[in-house]
Design a protein around this nucleic acid. Structure first.
Lengths: 229, 229
DNA sequence: TAATTAAGTGTAAATATCACATTAATAATT
DNA sequence: AATTATTAATGTGATATTTACACTTAATTA
């Protein structure tokens, strides 16, 4: 019988989160030092097991919240990893999720308590199991998403400068972008509010601050635009 | 304890396959009439449970082979579905896969024996569980993939005419394409071999047959091209 | 008040996309 | 043998998009 429920094998189902953040030093991911066996002391993605009464999306949200204190964060399911011995303890299938957060917003204390730490994506430690692969795939997806939705705004503080936005996109795509062309493309989308306020940290002249305009974005969304950078 | 293996709940893991095929009548999916409860007699995707010694990709391949007799088929993992009661019998998480096959190639006898049947994507019966949603998501992915890789060739016979290729893309994207612009775009990719042979079925003049040139495609692949149709 | 620093701005050339109509090859019909 | 009918094959000019590129401005500091 091909499809009998009773004879099928049950497995553990885990969720692992690739949490991206951005600050002045570039694009980062949040990793945790495992405090339990196996691989105790090594770096890993933040993760946990799916509960009986829980949907995968909820599990991902719960895990993110546990380690960062954050709610209402953009998360997206990526891929299910199922190599037989990917987890040496027991057959475990893991579904990866990625999240984008503004590094400034998270609960630093929580992160400390869990021995979690931010690492630049190009200078992260080796990870347990298949977590390196998960991260690489997440970066690919992030790049793709960036071209299709103005997803990067999740990574910036509420008010940001054009330079910050440019550098974020450069970090995500890991290539240099032409400043003028970038600005005119972004402006042509019409999804930014230019404030009267300036940020005086970065230069003598000061640079205007912007906010992301969700309403205008929702309007635009119908004609699913692409941002070719 | 957040991460203890022992306290975690195990679940059934299923694989469901969205199998796309193409013939003169357009784009189709392969569905099966369930011969077991629950929902016996209703239409469903082709699926099965993950086995203990099996990776998800292998399970998807096995399931495809069981029902179609085909091997070496392009398949891709799509998404994990985990709603609590999506399967009324028991908590089951299902990972969807999509496959592209040339309808002419499959084993028709096998399909008959399993009460499977091809349905036009726009005229398919209502499906059990969350399978309708799976199909809709698969169509979206197929559309996207089509613009990024020349994936459609999997759906055609080895030798095909430009008209067939055009109609395939029109079916996938569900919009009319300009014949001349389509041909020149496809040609500019340089991934087709024009044969000396003509297909005389479709017209008096006859139309040249083409094959897909895998070598040239692999060459091109480096500069990951996009096909904007 | 001169020097420094990053911000802000526009245009022309190249490329890609789009809309569009006629001729060519053959088989079937007379 | 000539005519008709059918689908295949082909190119161009107009428009839109993308790219490359350099100087001026505003404010602070020496």
């Amino acid at each position: 019988m091909l499809n009998s429920y009773s004879s099928a094998d049950k497995v553990l189902l885990a969720v692992d989160c690739i949490i991206f953040g951005f600050d002045n030093d570039g694009l980062k991911i949040l990793l945790i030092q495992r405090d339990f066996e196996p691989e105790k002391g090594k770096w890993s993605l933040i993760g946990g097991f799916l509960k009986r009464d829980e949907v995968l999306d909820t599990a991902a949200t719960r895990i993110l919240n546990t380690y960062t204190g954050l709610n209402d964060i953009y998360m997206e399911q990526l891929h299910a990893y199922s190599e037989i011995d990917r987890d040496p303890v027991e057959r475990t299938i893991s579904v990866s999720y990625f999240a984008l957060i503004n590094i400034e917003n998270h609960n630093a204390e929580l992160i400390q308590n869990y021995h979690a730490e931010w690492f630049p994506i190009n200078d992260a430690p080796n990870l347990i199991f298949d977590h390196n692969e998960m991260v690489q795939n997440a970066i690919k997806r992030l790049r793709y998403k960036t071209s299709v939705k103005p997803i990067g705004f999740e990574l910036l503080p509420e008010k940001f400068t054009m330079r910050q936005l440019l550098e974020l996109y450069e970090a995500i795509l890991s290539k240099e972008l032409d400043k003028r062309n970038f600005i005119s493309k972004i402006n042509s989308l019409g999804i930014l509010n230019k404030l009267d306020e300036k940020d005086m940290q970065s230069s003598r002249k000061g640079s205007y601050l912007y906010t992301f305009n969700k309403e205008k974005y929702e309007e635009k969304l119908q004609n699913n635009f692409a941002l070719n950078l």
